[in-house]
């Protein structure tokens, strides 16, 4: 039972207004039928006492603070199943993203914040903070070891900053930093298939925690660094392996 009546007249619905300006096509926010299809098929339903339907209803009512400050906004993965299932194609994940962005940066989850800040430390864009030199060292070291220990791979390549390569391929930091042997299968496949590819010394890291942090400026910086390296090298295709 509600403890007090919500006075709709007092609600400014600022968050909704701002969101509708940003979301392509306005996000269809006013078209909610309240059917609950989104909530029924969302794995985050019930976490932090929220679900996509409740979250949207709160925003539509103008309960901006209660909705946007709920830790639930960090428990939605943005998988978009709710949009896919919704008869009105309402963009709830984008609302969640905007809600994340209303949090003071230093109050956002430490792990995500730290991973974004690591990516801003150097030109790698790596959430684990590995520098371009670290990356080059690991790649060369692993490649050398394959050639020394496995027969038939003398021509195996793991190019970095190869000008004019067709594919610019990025790499999740987890391999070079914590399990470098897992780099090798991809190199072998590219070699067997005769693919012309390269990593970049800058922007080689595939992950982007600044996006999850809803820090637009940093997200753009990390992405731009990588894309510009691809353009600088004259590669034809930017292949995001993440």
């Amino acid at each position: 039972m509600a403890e007090e009546v919500i006075d709709l007249g007092k609600m400014t619905r600022d968050f909704k207004k701002e969101a509708m300006k940003i979301i392509p096509g306005g996000g269809n926010l006013d078209l909610c039928l309240n059917c609950g299809t989104c909530a029924a098929g969302c794995p985050a339903t019930g976490l932090a006492d929220l679900d996509p339907r409740k979250f949207l209803r709160m925003i539509l009512l103008g309960l901006d603070e209660e909705a946007t400050k709920s830790p639930w906004v960090w428990m939605c993965t943005g998988c978009q199943r709710c949009i896919y299932a919704c008869p009105m194609q309402i963009d709830i994940p984008r609302l969640v993203y905007n809600a994340r962005a209303t949090w003071p940066r230093e109050e956002r989850p430490k792990g995500i914040l730290g991973s974004c800040d690591m990516a801003l430390k150097n030109a790698s864009g790596s959430a684990m903070g590995a520098s371009p030199d670290d990356f080059i060292f690991v790649v060369e070291d692993v490649l050398e070891e394959v050639k020394d220990t496995q027969p038939g791979w003398d021509e195996l390549q793991a190019p970095i900053d190869k000008k004019g390569a067709h594919f610019f391929i990025n790499q999740n930091s987890r391999e070079p930093v914590t399990e470098p042997d897992e780099l090798i299968p991809l190199w072998k496949l590219l070699h067997v298939a005769g693919i012309d590819w390269t990593y970049g010394s800058k922007g080689w890291a595939g992950e982007n925690y600044c996006m999850f942090l809803a820090d637009d400026k940093s997200w753009e910086h990390v992405t731009r660094t990588s894309i510009m390296q691809c353009a600088e090298l004259g590669c034809k295709v930017y292949l995001n392996t993440e």
Binding site: W74, T77, G78, R81, G111, S115, A127
Partner: peptide
């Protein structure tokens, strides 16, 4: 269904 590893959840 999403497995729950995305969106920064692993680091949250």
């Amino acid at each position: 269904y999403c497995c729950g590893g995305g969106g920064g959840f692993l680091q949250s």
